[in-house]
Amino acid sequence: MGTTAASHDPSQGHQHGGGHERAHHRFQAHHFETMSQQFDSAKLGMWLFLATEVLFFGGLFVVYAVLRARFPEVFKYASLYLDTQMGGINTCVLILSSLTMAMAVYFAQTNKKGPMLACLWLTLAGAFGFMIIKYFEYTHKIHEHLVWGPGFYVPSHDRAGEALSADLALHPDAEHQPADVVAAAVGEPTQVPVKAIQLAVAGPATEASAIAPAATGPRNLSFAVTEPSAAAEGDVIPAEDPTAHLADAQMPPNTHLFFAIYYAMTGLHGVHVVVGIFVISWLIWRGMKGHFNASYYTPVDLVGLYWHIVDLVWIFLFPLFYLID
């Protein structure tokens, strides 16, 4: 039933407008007395929604804190696999797109349709830019098996490994098998090209862990590399060998947990960026139809708030993942 009928209800705006008759705005809902009341309500609603977003991400931040407190060496070590340059560029991209978003709100408030649309397009470009960079980061890592869970330890190009990996995915319990079974499925340790890699792990990385440092990976799944001294310069992980990370004798146990929380947090953040792409596109569509002006720009403002919170989360994610010494 009724909003269309309702919005023509003429009994609005009498009591508090200082007695003067005001024309009814096209986007004013029937149950609000004034545009101001509607704007304030929408804004409070949005802030409450942002509070839920903060708590939603907050849960993951708590997981992060607990894991990092329990396995500080894992975070120090695994952070080196992340590309600080790409992370830094993405930070700048998001900050600049936040600026253009704030400018879009400004131009909407001052009735400048053209510049507002330009700013929204720029923001959209920023969102796409962020996702493209993220895409390269993700594919690179997935190629190198820097992923969560059992996949971290299983080279998928190895046929036995593929079978095992499928098996692990279906039956999480499978990784309870004795390590030698798994190792056999993966292949003889000697078949793995031993190309020990230089990882600037300062000091004994595992001193704070409750779990004793192991020369091999978690559950003895990795391949006992005996010559860390034969370190090679250059790329951290050689492109031709996606499983080289397993060959590092200094890899602390449970390194996969870093990637679990890394993908969880950046993945959830990425989902929010994608949602942002849709809502910004919607704003552009409405903006082109001329819906926004100084007295009605609520959607621009609210999407702006959303976009800033996406930026804000990244501001914390960047140092927490990329910049661990």
């Binding site: 839920t52 907050g58 059992p150 779990i211």
Partner: peptide, 26 residues
């Protein structure tokens, strides 16, 4: 929202085996 993220992690744990709540995986 905290329930939401908990359940989301539970689904991811069950489908992708990320190990955040699994003592066998730390």
């Amino acid at each position: 929202p905290v329930l939401a993220i908990t359940l989301a992690l539970l689904v991811v744990e069950r489908t992708l085996n990320i190990g955040i709540f699994n003592p066998d995986m730390g």
